[in-house]
């Protein structure tokens, strides 16, 4: 008998979106408050895992048609390139740069290259977690 999990599916549609937004919030908050790329990445993958629980692997692949191994590799490359950028400014490897900018809507904001490095971490965490879960899930 096929069970009808309409409550789970409807709840997931709302909740996974909220988890995803929260993961982005945590990611950007990392410099001044607890958070950062690692927790952010884990939260984002937990949103995807919730989708996997409510629907099945094929549907989720249709929603997010990405290869998670590629995402991992992209994350590594973003992090390496951010760290090596300093070499071209005649500074030591891994030197970060920051400055204050006036952005529309946000006002005076400090932009730091550490965020780009964290973006790499975020992508690697999402990629690795989802690769693990999907590989085990698809295994017969």
């Amino acid at each position: 008998m096929k069970t009808n999990d309409v409550i789970l599916k409807t709840g997931t549609k709302v909740v996974s979106f909220m988890i995803f937004l929260f993961s982005i919030h945590i990611f950007f908050a990392g410099h001044y408050t607890p958070g950062g790329g690692f927790v952010g990445g884990l939260l984002a993958s937990s949103a995807i895992v919730l989708l996997l629980l409510a629907f099945d692997i094929k549907t989720v692949k249709k929603i997010l048609p990405v290869n998670y191994i590629t995402i991992t590799a992209a994350g590594i490359i973003i992090s390496i390139l951010t760290a090596s950028a300093a070499v071209f400014f005649n500074k030591s490897f891994f030197t970060h740069f920051f400055d204050y900018f006036h952005l529309p809507l946000l006002g005076k904001t400090s932009l730091h290259t550490a965020t780009l490095f964290d973006l790499g971490v975020y992508l690697v965490v999402v990629g690795v977690t989802m690769t693990i879960i999907q590989t085990i899930g698809e295994d017969e």
């Binding site: 191994i69 590629t70 991992t72 590799a73 590594i76 090596s84 005649n90 490897f93």
Partner: peptide
């Protein structure tokens, strides 16, 4: 700056990540 010290560590790392895009 002595960034050259890191070259033998970073170069294989970067290439390893690039190879992950083209496994086939």
């Amino acid at each position: 700056m002595n960034n050259l010290i890191l070259f033998p560590v970073i170069a294989p790392f970067l290439f390893a990540a690039i190879l992950m895009f083209i496994p086939k």
